[in-house]
Simulated assay, not measured.
Amino acid sequence: MRKLFSTEVEAFGLRGRIWTAHYGPAHSRVTPSQLRAGPAYVLLHGIGVSHRYLARLHAVLDASGPTYSLDLPGFGGTPKPERRLSVADYGAFIAAVLKSRGIDSYYLVGHSMGVQFSIETALHAPDAVLGLVLMGPVVDSRHKNVGRQSLALAIDGLFHESPSSNWIVLTDYLRCGIRWYLTELPVMMAYPTMERVAHLQVPVLVLRGDRDPVAGSDWSLRLSRAAAEGRLSEIPGCGHVVQHLRPKAVADAIKSFVSPVTQA
């Protein structure tokens, strides 16, 4: 797997990191001569974790177009903000950082709470976002309290994830720390995902592993139907962190979704 390069990014007094497999675009503003052919993908992690559990998907997508991953403020070892951030705060941060780097036309690929970040980024910068891929979207209507959400995550980790996936998630949780995780958990739980998706005016792909207990099949189908232009794709034999276990299958589903949008 190709090595990823990172640089610190800042907007609104918040600091994070952007990662790319190609030295240059992540370290300075992108110029037209630096842009590679194909759509740009921006990968967004969920609560408590970082770009690391997206790295396999990043590597596969990067073969077909410029790909960027973010470590958002408070996660992945980045500085903790001095206040609780809303999902809209994160969306504004993402849009501002990408604009500052000259990345002004892209597909957002969010996982878990990263789905929420993707939605708010698209609503904040509608002219820049070509489409959204919502992987393992939260919070499933069956898990509208922390106890049920935690149980679903525990079942997923015990029965549907690989040791390497669990190790990445666990060590990222430790890097995030319990204080910031618990600071942002109520934000994730309260976010009206279904209602916000209905406001999107770009194509949406809802994607899940077919064994995912966190983002169930009924919830994911209803979420895809709430979008003005939505569809659902399921990857066989996978749980919540589908992009780590089956990166090529996930990338193929994303590229199939992107192709007709690009040709339109």
Rank of each mutant, 00 (worst) to 15 (best):
R36E: 10
T67H: 02
D104V: 07
S86T: 15
P66D: 08
L35H: 10
L98T: 03
A63S: 15
E82P: 03
L35A: 12
D89M: 05
L57T: 02
G91D: 01
G74L: 05
G38Q: 09
R83G: 09
Q116G: 06
L44Q: 08
G38C: 06
V49L: 15
H51Q: 10
L44F: 07
S64M: 13
F75R: 03
G114E: 00
V87S: 05
G46I: 06
A125K: 03
G114F: 07
E82D: 12
S50A: 13
G74N: 02
R36V: 14
S100I: 05
M113R: 05
V115Q: 12
R101G: 11
A40E: 08
S100W: 04
H111A: 15
P39F: 08
S100Q: 01
A125I: 08
Y90Q: 07
G110P: 12
L108R: 03
P73T: 14
V87P: 00
R83V: 12
L35N: 02
V87I: 15
A95W: 02
A59Q: 15
A59E: 15
L61G: 09
D104M: 04
M113N: 05
P126R: 10
A63W: 14
G102H: 14
V87Y: 00
V49P: 01
L61A: 04
T121I: 03
G102W: 03
G114W: 02
R56G: 00
L44Y: 07
S105D: 11
A96N: 00
R56S: 13
G110Q: 11
L44V: 14
A95Y: 00
V87A: 06
G76H: 05
P79A: 07
D104F: 00
S86P: 02
V42I: 11
S86K: 06
D89W: 11
Y90K: 01
F117Q: 05
R52I: 07
D71I: 08
L85W: 07
A95D: 05
S69V: 09
V97M: 05
T78V: 10
G46H: 08
L72K: 02
V87D: 00
S69E: 03
L35S: 11
H45K: 08
D62F: 01
S105A: 09
